[in-house]
Design a protein around this nucleic acid. Structure first.
Lengths: 245, 245
DNA sequence: GTAATAGTGTCTATGAGACATTATTAC
DNA sequence: GTAATAATGTCTCATAGACACTATTAC
C-alpha cells in the first residue's frame, strides 16, 4: 500500500480513485437582480483548500447516505437553504487533475431555481457562512475557489439561453404570480425590456399557466394570478424571444 | 481498515469513494439509419459485471493517464473507433448505489457524432468486440448493461431535440457535403420528410456553410459541396423546424 | 428526347414586434 | 377627476410551409 491514507489505491484497478463531489448553482431573483448562493470556505483551517474564498455550495458524495447523485444534491440544497423541492436539473460535470489541490476530482453540478419568498420562509435553516450575491457582480470579479467561476459562468449561460425560449423563469416566482411579475423576471434575467403584448400572447398560447383568481396588489388594478400546470419541467416555445427576428 | 481491497475507505473522509467512469454514446448514420456503437462485455469472466451483455463503450477514469474527463473520453473514443476529433460534447452524469453491482459509481457520459466515412477510414483501429447497431432496434428491445438503456434514451432525445433547431446533423457528414445529403441526414434523424425549399433557405440563411465547389455525384446534376465554417459548435436556428408552427 | 436530381420562384397564412387604446383600481 | 397599473386591439412586415417550376446532368 503505497498511497496516502486520504488517497488509497483500489487494488483491483491499479490506480487511485478520484474524489467525487456534488456542487450546486442556486439562483433566485430579489431586489430586481439575479443572485446566486455562495459559501465562504473556512479561513483558519490550513487543511482546507481555498481558505476564506467564496465557492459554490457542495461537497463530497457520501455513499452511506446518498442513494444517488440527485439525492445528494437535494440533501446539500436542504442543508444550505432549508428548501425541499425547487426546480432542480443537472448542469453537467467537471473533473480533472488540476481543479482541486487535494487531487484528481470530479464534481457533478446541479442547477436550482428558488423563489425568493421560499428562501425567506426557510430563513432559520440558512447556514451562517452563506450569502446571496448578485450574479453580475460575481461574474465581473470572479474570485471563486476551485473551477467554480467557470461553472457559474456555464450555469448563467444555460439559464440565459433557456430563458429565450422556455418558461424556466416561472420557477423563480412563488405561486400565484401575475403576468407582469413574470415579465419582470424575464427582463431581469435577460437584462433587456420585453414587449408586454407579445409577452402575454406568448405565455398564454403556451398553455402552461392555470388561472388562480385575481391577486390584490399593493395598489391599482389587480392582476390575474396564475400557477404552473406542471411544476416538473419548463415549456419550450416554438421560437426564441429576441428582436431582430 | 475495514473495507475490501477493491473498495477502500478514504481515511480523511470516513466513507468509501465511489468509482468514477466515463461512457460514450457514439452516433453515426449509415445505410439510411441512425446507429450507435456498442460493445459486448466479456462472456466468460465471472468477475465482470453483465457478462455477455451489450453496453456503451467506456470504463474507469485512470488518474495516472487522464488529465481531465474530456481527455478520458477522447482516449476511449480513439481506442474504440480510431477517430481522433469528432464532435464531442458532454451529455450528463449518472451516479448511484444501484447502477453497478460492484458498488456506488458515477459515470460521466459524452456524446459523439462521427461521419460514417471516418469510421471506414479508421477501420483497422476498431476493436473486435464492438458493433454499430440501429438505434431504433436497440431502443425497441433495450437489453443493455448497467443503466445504459436510460443513458442511450437520453442521448437520442438530446440528439433529436437539437436537430429541430441546430445544425448538429452536419457533424454526421464528411466534408464536403451537399445540401441534399444534409437534408437526408435531417430526415433520417427526425424520421420525417423535410421540405426542400424551406430547408435550403434555412441552412443558407444560418451562415454556417462555406462553398467548396461542385461535387460530382454518381449521376445527374452535380450539387454544390459545402464545408462547415466552424467545426467547434453547431449553429442555433431562431425557430424550430416544421411542426404545425 | 426521358429520367433523375439540383436548385429557384411564388403564394399564403401565421404571428412576432411595435405601439396605441381601453379597463380597473387607489386616491 | 388624475395617476398607476393591467389588459387588449391594430397594423405591418418577415418568413415558414407548401408546391409549382426551372436547370443541369446521364442516358
Amino acid at each position: 500500500m503505497t498511497a496516502k491514507p486520504s488517497r488509497p489505491r483500489a487494488a483491483s484497478l491499479g490506480f487511485p480513485l478520484p474524489f467525487t463531489t456534488v456542487d450546486l448553482v442556486i439562483f433566485t431573483v430579489s431586489d430586481e437582480a439575479l443572485k446566486v448562493l455562495l459559501v465562504q470556505r473556512p479561513e483558519d483551517k490550513a487543511s482546507e483548500s481555498f481558505p476564506g474564498w467564496w465557492a459554490l455550495p457542495g461537497g463530497f458524495v457520501n455513499v452511506d447516505v446518498d442513494r444517488d447523485l440527485l439525492a445528494c444534491a437535494e440533501r446539500k440544497l436542504l442543508e444550505k437553504t432549508g428548501v425541499r423541492s425547487p426546480y432542480l436539473e443537472q448542469l453537467g460535470s467537471w473533473g480533472g487533475a488540476a481543479r482541486d489541490p487535494r487531487g484528481w476530482s470530479a464534481t457533478h453540478v446541479y442547477f436550482a431555481l428558488i423563489p425568493s419568498r421560499d428562501i425567506e420562509l426557510a430563513k432559520g435553516a440558512n447556514a451562517a457562512d452563506v450569502a446571496w450575491l448578485k450574479v453580475e457582480e460575481v461574474l465581473a470579479n470572479p474570485r471563486l475557489g476551485f473551477d467554480h467561476a467557470a461553472i457559474l459562468q456555464a450555469a448563467v449561460e444555460r439559464l440565459r439561453g433557456r430563458v429565450e425560449y422556455t418558461s424556466l423563469p416561472a420557477f423563480l416566482l412563488a405561486e400565484p404570480f401575475t403576468l407582469p411579475q413574470l415579465q419582470r423576471i424575464y427582463e431581469i434575467v435577460l437584462n433587456r425590456d420585453v414587449d408586454k403584448s407579445g409577452f402575454r400572447t406568448r405565455m398564454l398560447a403556451a398553455q402552461f399557466l392555470v388561472e388562480e383568481g385575481y391577486v390584490e396588489g399593493s395598489s391599482n388594478r389587480p392582476a390575474m394570478g396564475y400557477r404552473l400546470a406542471d411544476r416538473s419541467a419548463p415549456v419550450v416555445f416554438p421560437r426564441t424571444f429576441s428582436p431582430r427576428g
